[in-house]
Design a binder for these strands. Structure first.
Lengths: 335, 335
DNA sequence: CTGAAAGCGCTAACAG
DNA sequence: CTGTTAGCGCTTTCAG
């Protein structure tokens, strides 16, 4: 069916090796035969068989990208960044959508290593403490870069944002806007959520504000979680007058809840999110947020991975923390 | 480095073939040796080498998913649907993000066929009339399914929505809301945009409404395009009192423009989009839209592809058109 | 039930 | 500059 080197070699009366070398522009081949070979390849629309090539070179030019949720625009942005940085070098990206399930993640990572991907970029859904996946990954020798979520006990490459700083920036901004009772809708038990929570507390402490436990409520990753959490906060008295939300989808849900309760954002309740998803500007109330350079996270991770792949000996793990950046829109602006 | 069948065979003093058969549960192997082999595999954490396996079986269990824009939540949703349907069968998905560039698309599709993916799902960014990509795809014998965008002259499998119906539904809804001067912000020259435009015109004709050419303006795929297009419409006189937008991001941009101009949605200008992206409900004004079952498109495409892959002889191309569904929210509700 | 032989399409290493 | 040999890790085929 498909044209093979063998066919071209036979056609041209040369050896298979000559064809192989011509294709890859080896120097020890005459320009003339090279052209002859290349022309014939074009005529027959020859496509090298990457499977066969990988078999011997031990390079697949495949990179696995393991994400918890493609629908969350943060991860879609990361994926775009990864692709943008990796495609020019000839890599293809195998995406695995784990839907936040650690089991699925483990299975898929195994499948990817079985496929002999050259490297992995992982935003892990593993529960803290379950290190077996990473141990076996370390053992496999396949380089990988964690993104977004740090895993305690795993000394691996990492690219993410300074989550504690993010929390501080968001909270201090709310304070600066005159908020007196600042609540936080926290995310699930992943490092990003924990860091942001720490930042929230740290900022309050610094200003000598007493931390009220009931002002921190659990959300989930998405907008419905934010909606529900906000309903809880609205029942409190005294009611918070500002809320720092774990991420933008959560914040969007929170805004919805506030408006439906007949209150005003930001006048009665100021809201800030995190992530600067691309539609933040289009929400009910244009959403203040802390940008975490989503696409850049993808690009830096890709860069780091690509270095690891090219290195003969595994370089020491590197951790890259990007600086978050405050973006003020209407949802928190009071002065 | 990695454990091979050979190692296990040597360990156990059996032949390589015995190991191979045990792994794949061939019947002609004693239960006892099978267990012995499997146990040893577990002990050594053996992972079959898919490259080597693919080399001989000619099956990679890799499916290529070619999309114009991962950041557009419609495509992210499609991808999620594809993954959900394909992962249980052991497929992995290689995503190629073409960023709407036909060149990139062609290159990537070639890379994917070179990788010997078992099949492809493509939302193509090819210009109408350029069929060479599909001709060579047909020639390659690799099954593929087009999604979202039909390509004239390509008789291939397809899964998408009835775009003309979509346009009709949206436009008739605006008419039913009492709109008298209905404009349309159209998308780029792809089949979906053309179909929706046709539907818009058809609906107006049916009601005997004269079609004003200046009421159809070109947008792009995204919100900035919608914003710009809306600014144009606002300059017209008489000004439209309702706008059907090619998709939800465009509609979101359009709403922004209207509100910034100090007008009200839907009172002064009613707006409806298409696609029902998951954050539509959270926009400035909750967005009326026409749902196109994004995830379902992915699932159906995956299903169709998987049938084609399993078939010994290529089945005749099948076209699946899903029915759009009106979703009314505030942005168009007048009564 | 077990295994030996052959080969998938290609490239690394070396010889002419 | 060109070609030969060997083999990547596995499965298919067929003989014991």
């Amino acid at each position: 069916m498909a044209v093979r080197m063998k066919d071209i070699a036979r056609d041209l009366g040369v050896s298979l090796m000559t064809v192989s070398k011509a294709l890859r522009s080896h120097t020890d081949i005459s320009e003339e035969t090279r052209q002859r070979v290349l022309r014939r390849m074009r005529e027959l629309n020859y496509q090298p068989d990457w499977i066969a090539r990988s078999m011997v070179t031990r390079r697949t030019y495949l990179v696995g990208l393991v994400l918890p949720d493609l629908m969350h625009s943060f991860f879609a942005e990361v994926a775009t960044g990864v692709a943008r940085r990796l495609q020019p070098s000839g890599y293809q990206i195998v995406i695995s959508n784990t839907e936040e399930d650690p089991e699925t993640e483990s299975r898929n990572v195994e499948a990817l290593t079985s496929r002999k991907v050259d490297g992995l970029i992982i935003a892990s859904a593993q529960r803290q403490g379950n290190l077996s996946l990473f141990r076996s990954l370390d053992h496999s020798g396949i380089p990988y870069v964690l993104i977004d979520r740090l895993i305690a006990g795993v000394d691996a490459n990492y690219v993410g944002v300074k989550d504690e700083d993010l929390g501080i920036i968001a909270t201090e901004h709310l304070i600066a806007q005159g908020a007196k009772r600042i609540a936080h809708i926290r995310g699930p038990a992943v490092s990003t959520a924990k860091g942001r929570l720490r930042g929230y507390r740290r900022a309050l402490e610094r200003r000598g504000v007493k931390i009220r436990p009931e002002y921190t409520v659990a959300g989930q990753f998405g907008d419905s979680g934010g909606y529900g959490a906000m309903l809880q906060l609205l029942k409190l008295s005294p009611r918070p007058d500002a809320v720092f939300c774990y991420n933008d989808p959560v914040a969007a849900g929170a805004i919805k809840a506030v408006l439906e309760a007949g209150m005003k954002v930001p006048e009665e309740i100021a809201i800030i999110g995190a992530g600067n998803v691309h539609y933040s500007d289009l929400l009910r109330v244009p959403l203040s947020t802390v940008d975490q350079s989503s696409a850049l996270i993808g690009e830096r991770a890709a860069e780091l991975l690509s270095q690891c792949i090219d290195a003969k000996t595994p370089p020491p793990p590197q951790r890259i923390f990007l600086s978050p950046r405050l973006i003020v829109r209407d949802s928190s602006r009071r002065q």
